[in-house]
Design a protein around this nucleic acid. Structure first.
Length: 771
DNA sequence: TACCTCCACGTTTTT
DNA sequence: CGTGGAGGTA
């Protein structure tokens, strides 16, 4: 009686999905390593395995744990399970490593030595804490760059090492070790936990606490891991600890797609797993359902050049399809022009833009491409960049919320104590820090003391520790009412203390979205951005934050909708980075962020030696192999059509660089590739580049004329510049004048730059050139 | 406190 | 070329 969801699986997929318990061991599950090539149905196998285990009664939904690296993958997995089985997936332990560890630590915060409302630091917050710490300790940040300190701390944690475990063989490493130790102390005092700490703390919790360990081991008989090749040491140790001797890990991964070694991922964990769990079954999924034959042949031939592989060869029953198209461009500009033309052609053949990806090795390469696409009027979406919860205004709002939730959070206090400005400058803040350090208390406690002290001084009373917050609040509110906009510096602190205290009191019993609304209003954030010239977007984002909270509260998958849970959600899931996700648009992204995706057509641009493979990676151990895997990932994203392009010269860091073609071209058999510009290359290139230039002018004129409102076309008699006129700025590039004001020395024009948005420029200074 | 100018730096990234 | 951070000045 095979459930319907098993139909359509191939032999190997079916074997993996229905892998029986280990022979002669009762119901003890069997460990397995599934070597799943690109496009071989990896996620399907993983989710179907879960459905099968539940359906056949080998596991209950609560009795298994499935772990992924990204929230997106976790959500996808839950959605697929829900589609196969009539069960409520809420409450299932399916999530990211960090999400699951967070869950466990929340449930056992005491045993883990954490405060109940511990806050999670993202990388930004972590770096800020390190800087603050180093400044307070007077550490030379030239010799010990905060970023490097952060890297040191994180990589030690990823290895499972505390400061006490760190090496100290010379003065530098001794100092780093001290900084790590100081950081540990600071985090503990402030009740905050960074990303790596979530994992390390959880690992320590399970390894030290036998009762809990046994509890979870007894519960999770099946542990399933996605993208196993991306696990770092600590993550693997965590999995081992949870699995113990009796439970089984079902790991799915592809060593050829291991592209995160630079952040500690170790594909060697695949070999470790086989050894540690005595894996009998290594199942290879080699049938590819994604790409045409030539594309796969190219990918296989390329990856053959790597020495350290588990070994696997993808095949397809699909036809050979088209050859790979190779374009050698004269310049990066020319390359962009070629891509624009081909995208247009594909689009007119009926391929939707969202089915076309434009990939590059590094983000800096997107600019030329974006420019060309913009001028050609092709809709595109760039992945990467600032995400929603990482935006400045959102971080500020979240900092107020964190402070409401947890007094001790010094990072949150530091961020907003003077934002919006309330007269607490560096001097006052330093005094506060000194006081906190002297007394060994949190910044908040120091602020409360300072605020209280001010009142008592005025009344000739003696300061006392342990005064109730309400008294301070009542008193500080009193302060606020007397404050003038330019109150003396010391007055700022009582005002701040009163503000936080009153917000805390007023929001104590409110639902989450209303808490946020209250905070936005009363913190002064809203007013601040309202009065800021370019604050409109930020205000919109702040409103969006309320919506996000409302969505969070009403999400049925969410069992905890407290403020703290929302803050954890914000840190662990930084959100999307682009608003217009739905529109049909060409997809621009780095090769790294393309992993796991597929497209009808793929352009891999900038295939130049030094760029891809990247020169910086070549000095690292196995760097070239990792770059090759990256190229392998890029190639295998395409279903039907694949373009490879490179440019003889390219503007990079303000200099023209002359590059040769990537060595990867030599690793792909010539018969699979078709050069689309042999011989007439340079001539065609220059013509094309001319044509593209002309076309872009026409299209930008069209764009400009569409964006002009008729009523703004009133020219002033003595004004040398006209609204609607195309101009060029040495820094901002081409643009069009959309508004003007003043005359003579005060004359200013508003220019909508194609690349840099709208700016007001003083004509006296700005070197505008008519175009 | 806020703005401005100068300087250094520039691979990939999720949580 | 562009940006972001730091430091100096109004």
């Amino acid at each position: 009686m095979n459930p319907s969801f098993l139909s359509g699986l191939n032999e190997q997929q079916l074997e993996a999905v229905t892998l029986p318990p280990r022979l002669g061991s009762g119901q003890a599950p069997q460990p397995a390593l599934i070597l799943a090539g690109a496009g071989s149905g990896k996620t399907r196998v993983l989710t179907t395995r879960i459905a099968w285990l539940i359906q056949t009664g080998q596991a209950s939904p609560a009795g298994l744990l499935a772990v992924t690296f990204t929230n997106k993958a976790a959500k996808e997995m839950l959605a697929r399970i829900a589609a196969m089985l009539p069960i409520n997936t809420r409450g299932m332990w399916v999530g990211t490593f960090h999400g699951l560890c967070n869950r466990m630590l929340r449930a056992h915060y005491r045993e883990a030595g954490l405060p109940q409302l511990f806050q999670i630091l993202d990388s930004q917050d972590q770096l800020a804490l390190i800087k603050r710490l180093m400044k307070a300790a007077n550490v030379d940040d030239e010799k010990y760059p905060p970023r490097q300190v952060a890297w040191y701390i994180n990589s030690h944690k990823d290895e499972g090492k505390r400061a006490a475990d760190a090496d100290d063989y010379d003065s530098f490493s001794r100092r780093m070790k001290e900084l790590y130790a100081a950081y540990e102390g600071q985090c503990q005092r402030e009740g905050v936990v960074d990303f790596a700490e979530l994992l390390l703390r959880c690992h320590e919790l399970l390894s030290k606490n036998e009762i809990l360990r046994d509890h979870y081991r007894g519960r999770f008989r099946h542990i399933l891991v996605d993208e196993f090749q991306d696990t770092n040491r600590l993550q693997y140790q965590w999995l081992r600890l949870l699995a113990g001797r009796d439970n089984a890990i079902f790991a799915v991964g592809d060593d050829d797609q291991s592209i995160y070694a630079f952040r500690g991922a170790s594909a060697a964990n695949m070999q470790e797993l086989q050894k540690d769990f005595a894996v009998e079954k290594v199942i290879k999924l080699e049938q590819n359902y994604r790409s045409h034959g030539h594309i796969l042949d190219a990918a296989n031939a390329l990856i053959e050049h790597n020495r350290r592989r588990l070994g696997k060869n993808l095949w397809t029953s699909a036809s050979k399809g088209e050859p790979l198209r190779v374009y050698e461009a004269a310049t990066d500009f020319d390359e962009a022009g070629f891509i624009v033309e081909e995208v247009k052609a594909l689009h007119s053949e009926g391929v939707s833009l969202s089915e076309i990806a434009l990939l590059y090795r590094s983000n800096a390469q997107s600019r030329v491409l974006e420019h060309a696409l913009f001028n050609a009027g092709i809709a595109y979406r760039v992945y990467g960049g600032l995400r929603f919860f990482e935006r400045q205004e959102i971080k500020h709002a979240l900092a107020y919320l964190r402070l409401l939730a947890s007094d001790d959070d010094g990072g949150a206090l530091t961020r907003v104590i003077n934002f919006p400005t309330r007269g607490i400058g560096n001097r006052s803040f330093e005094q506060l820090q000194d006081l906190a350090r002297e007394r060994g208390v949190s910044l908040w406690a120091a602020a409360v003391e300072k605020a209280g002290g001010g009142r008592r001084e005025a009344r000739g009373e003696k300061a006392a520790v342990g005064e109730s917050e309400d008294a301070v609040k009542a008193d500080a509110v009193d302060h606020v009412s007397r404050l003038t906009p330019h109150a003396s510096l010391a007055k700022g602190i009582p005002a701040f203390v009163a503000l936080i205290a009153s917000m805390r009191a007023a929001t104590a019993s409110l639902p989450l979205p209303e808490i946020i609304e209250h905070v936005l209003e009363h913190s002064g954030l809203k007013q601040h951005y309202q009065s800021e010239r370019e604050g409109a977007d930020r205000l919109e984002n702040l409103d969006e934050l309320i919506n996000a909270a409302a969505g969070f509260v009403s999400d049925e998958q969410q069992d905890d909708t407290s403020l703290t849970a929302f803050l954890a959600h914000a840190a662990l899931e930084a959100g999307d980075n682009q608003a217009q996700a739905g529109a049909d648009a060409l997809q621009l992204m780095t090769v790294h962020s393309a992993k796991g995706l597929e497209f009808h057509s793929v352009f891999i641009s900038g295939l130049e030696e030094g760029l891809f493979p990247h020169e910086n990676s070549l000095s690292e151990a196995d760097g070239r192999e990792e770059e090759r895997r990256l190229m392998y990932v890029a190639l295998t994203r395409a279903r039907r059509r694949l373009y490879l392009s490179f440019a003889q010269s390219r503007m990079l860091h303000g200099q023209t660089r002359y590059n040769i073609a990537s060595s990867f071209f030599e690793e792909i058999p010539e018969r699979l590739m078709k050069r689309v510009n042999i011989g007439l290359r340079s001539k065609v290139a220059s013509l094309r580049s001319d044509a593209t230039g002309l076309r872009s002018k026409v299209s930008s004129l069209k764009f400009d004329s569409q964006n002009l409102k008729p009523e703004t076309l009133n020219f002033r008699p003595d004004f040398p510049w006209k609204i609607g006129q195309n101009v060029t700025h040495p820094k901002f590039g081409a643009g069009v004048i959309v508004d003007a004001e003043g005359r003579g020395a005060d004359a200013r024009v508003q220019v909508n730059f194609h690349r840099n948005g709208t700016k007001w420029l003083a004509l006296e200074y700005a070197k505008l050139i008519p175009a």
